[in-house]
Design a binder for these strands. Structure first.
Lengths: 139, 139
DNA sequence: AATTTATTAAACCAAATGGTTGACTATTGC
DNA sequence: GCAATAGTCAACCATTTGGTTTAATAAATT
């Protein structure tokens, strides 16, 4: 549905979640939390960073809904909240068919060649081969 | 294992990929590209934004390896490159067990209580069990 | 009561981001 | 050749980011 598409990239959390995940320190914190609850200072120590710095990272994660915190006395316990990660994965799932099936690749290649053909055969052959595992023939 | 953990959040692409995905305009562009190849201006028009602005977004996507471009004359054709999205999803997959099964939740709760117990017995052996609990039951 | 511990808050800073405009480079079409 | 088209590049701007340091707050310890 068109409505679906309109909404798809406007899921408000996605901005915050993906942004939170874009920092390696924060990903490490999340990973650390898979081992269970941790206090702020426990989370902070492995990183070469001030406590306040780590605290800010944790707040970003909290803001994205990826971490929950419960305070107990002076200690703040953080805990992984994975639901939003599920949302992110759900978003990615939409694109699964673009890497799972080679049929789609073929379809796309054909369309590409169609277009190329339609536009006559004047093309610069300077496409940089990406060398990675992109088994797609880049012509 | 530790090595695994060290590497896990250092996959160089992840920074760029997640950052690229953190912007709704860029997600929309990606989504648009699921319909097949598009030129830069085709991608730009739906957004209330200068061509140069959209061009920058596309370059970010390209930098993250999410879009490939092939130039043909004066026209730049962009095409979805989903492999890096797969990497992102793979990273997320690690966390799947934290939202799929409630068994894991239970496991975590137990471990949590273990820690609380260990902690209290370490510092003051006769400390009473904290009745704060995990507040997880409020779900 | 005084001190140490756990943590946030605030002010600051350099760098990156997301956007603009205007100039520049090719390519295409008349 | 000349103008329109497709797109980048460079400079600029406001805001955000990721980090710091120095308070400030609140709880635990002595």
């Amino acid at each position: 549905m068109i409505l679906n598409h309109m909404v798809e990239f406007q899921i408000p959390h996605l901005d915050a979640v993906f942004h939170a995940l874009s920092d390696p320190t924060r990903r490490a914190i999340l990973h650390r939390l898979t081992g269970g609850e941790r206090t702020v200072s426990e989370l902070a120590t492995p990183f070469n960073m001030s406590l306040a710095g780590a605290s800010k990272h944790i707040k970003v994660l909290e803001g994205a809904g990826l971490v929950r915190r419960h305070v107990q006395g002076r200690t703040h316990y953080c805990q992984l909240e994975a639901a939003r990660l599920a949302e992110a994965q759900e978003w990615l799932r939409t694109y699964e068919r673009f890497w799972t099936t080679r049929l789609d690749d073929l379809e796309e290649i054909l369309r590409e060649e169609d277009r190329a053909l339609a536009r006559s055969s004047e093309q610069s052959p300077s496409s940089p081969a990406k060398s990675d595992k992109t088994s797609r023939s880049t012509k």
